[in-house]
């Protein structure tokens, strides 16, 4: 049996993953390589921030302590955030953003497909919506991997560098800590370790179509679920939380 605290922590993790990535994507607004792509990136950012609101709203409902979705986004420090590290890495250039998005989309689509079957009805409903979004996110990011990988020498090299720089953060996607195991056993969460072989197969196929090389597994950084982050997260939070910290307790 899982208890309320465990469920809350589990949902909060998913909220953190969504918010942190949504925030990074939102940094592309008025910075896209052309106007259509600027709008598309903002759209994906909106999907992720929307997901964060649903997960945080549910967290607040489970906590039933007067907290709101904003309490989780704006009133916690770096060590309290439990997102997977890949989501928080600075947006980088367009190749880095699309490489990350593709790697995350392949994972997220498989994850949401399982989470739709969760015994927790709220999680299943959020996953239902997220799964539909992921279908088009993945279609979009895959096509960018192909175009950049098999485009010019410069785009190929930029994308290969981005994949290389991201690769060591992908292992964490499939890590199962005690909470994940409990949630998976209770048919509420997802056995992420079991998603890894298919993810590797898909990613390898796409990268090879895009004339890219799958990096060797010679470095791994993890720790997000324990609140051990990259230094970039603190800066993101100081930007994001500025108003709530400078004028505490106000309505906006």
């Amino acid at each position: 049996m899982i208890d309320k605290e465990q469920l809350k922590e589990f949902v909060l993790r998913l909220g953190d993953d969504s918010l942190v990535l949504g925030h990074r994507l939102s940094q592309w607004s008025s910075n896209g390589p052309f106007l259509e792509e600027d709008l598309a990136l903002t759209n994906v950012a909106l999907d992720y921030v929307g997901r964060a609101r649903m997960f945080y709203g549910y967290t607040a409902e489970i906590a039933a302590d007067g907290s709101t979705e904003d309490s989780y986004a704006y009133n916690r420090d770096c060590r309290d955030f439990t997102n997977l590290l890949i989501h928080e890495l600075p947006r980088g250039d367009f190749a880095f953003t699309m490489a990350r998005q593709y790697l995350v989309d392949e994972f997220s689509l498989a994850y949401m497909k399982r989470l739709k079957l969760s015994r927790d009805k709220t999680l299943a409903a959020i996953a239902e919506k997220a799964y539909k979004e992921d279908l088009y996110h993945l279609r979009r990011s895959t096509s960018w991997i192909l175009r950049l990988g098999d485009g010019t020498t410069q785009s190929h090299d930029r994308l290969q560098n981005a994949i290389d720089d991201l690769w060591g953060y992908t292992t964490e996607l499939f890590e199962m800590d005690e909470l994940d195991q409990e949630m998976s056993k209770a048919d509420v969460g997802v056995d992420v370790a079991s998603l890894q072989p298919e993810w590797i197969r898909q990613v390898t196929a796409t990268l090879s179509d895009a004339t890219l090389t799958v990096p060797a597994n010679d470095w791994v950084v993890t720790g997000g679920r324990k609140g051990i982050h990259t230094e970039a997260l603190g800066h993101m939070l100081s930007d994001m939380q500025f108003l709530q910290r400078a004028y505490p307790g106000q309505q906006w």
Binding site: Q27, L39, T42, V49, Y56, Y74, D239, L243
Partner: peptide, 18 residues
């Protein structure tokens, strides 16, 4: 956009700028 004071405001502003 990155400093909107609530998640709701952030979504509205994102949609507006879009």
């Amino acid at each position: 956009l990155t400093r909107a004071p609530t998640l709701h405001r952030k979504c509205i502003l994102l949609a507006k700028v879009q």
